[in-house]
């Protein structure tokens, strides 16, 4: 240090007193910090969970707008196309006719299309359904638990294709590639929903 620093420095502290082990307070403090960090870490891991793309599809039960209950796990033996949508979502309006056409073509072949309305009020949802003449079952996700906590969707529309054993086989993020507005990405070509369904149905027949 410089001379002026030496002259200016405060007298050093008195002889340090050595104790035995760490005091209770110190242990509590360090434990507290560790716990705090652990909680943040767990929160981070949970927040980073993304949409499931394989394995058993999370089960859910909704009440359709016609008043019927619909439970996913009761649909074993049928392929289920789960579509998350909302009346305020512009791309969903483009998808709706496609899904309805899909439903009409495939419903006798062992495929069921179900729509889950995310963050939507009932009257708005019903108006949407009437506007597009949708006939497949639709229900509201009350409290957004199914969408957010089980399927971890980022927004709408998102579509999951679940096979006859309840496993997720395909996941479509945002607009279905079959639609006119399709591809958002540069060069990517995604197999369409119909192609996927055909493959899954063919698989079932060979078994």
């Amino acid at each position: 240090m410089t001379d002026s620093d030496f002259l200016q420095q405060i007298d050093p502290a008195p002889e340090p007193i050595r104790h035995g082990g760490l005091s209770v307070g110190s242990i509590v403090l360090i434990t507290g910090v560790v716990l705090f960090a652990a909680v943040i870490g767990i929160a981070l891991l949970r927040q980073q969970q993304t949409q499931p793309t394989s394995g058993q599809a999370p089960d859910f039960t909704i009440t359709t707008f016609d008043g019927q209950p619909f439970t996913l796990s009761e649909q074993r033996g049928t392929i289920v196309v789960v579509n998350f949508w909302a009346s305020w979502c512009a791309p969903c309006r483009e998808e709706a006719p496609l899904l309805e056409a899909l439903w009409r073509d495939y419903q006798d072949r062992g495929v069921i299309v179900v729509g889950v309305a995310y963050a939507d009020l009932d009257n708005d949802s019903r108006a949407f359904i009437d506007e597009f003449g949708i006939t497949y079952p639709n229900g509201a996700d009350i409290g957004t638990t199914i969408s957010k906590n089980r399927y971890h969707i980022l927004g709408v529309p998102e579509t999951f294709i679940i096979d006859q054993n309840g496993n997720i086989r395909r996941f479509f993020f945002q607009l279905l590639p079959d639609s006119a507005g399709g591809d958002d990405d540069l060069f990517v070509k995604i197999a369409s929903v119909r192609a996927t369904l055909d493959i899954l149905l063919a698989e079932a027949e060979t078994l």
């Binding site: 050595r18 110190s26 403090l29 360090i30 910090v33 560790v34 960090a37």
Partner: peptide
């Protein structure tokens, strides 16, 4: 954060 806390506790324990 943990390194800082541990160092403070250590030095305080030493009486510095």
């Amino acid at each position: 954060t943990l390194t800082g806390v541990v160092l403070i506790v250590y030095r305080r324990h030493q009486g510095h």
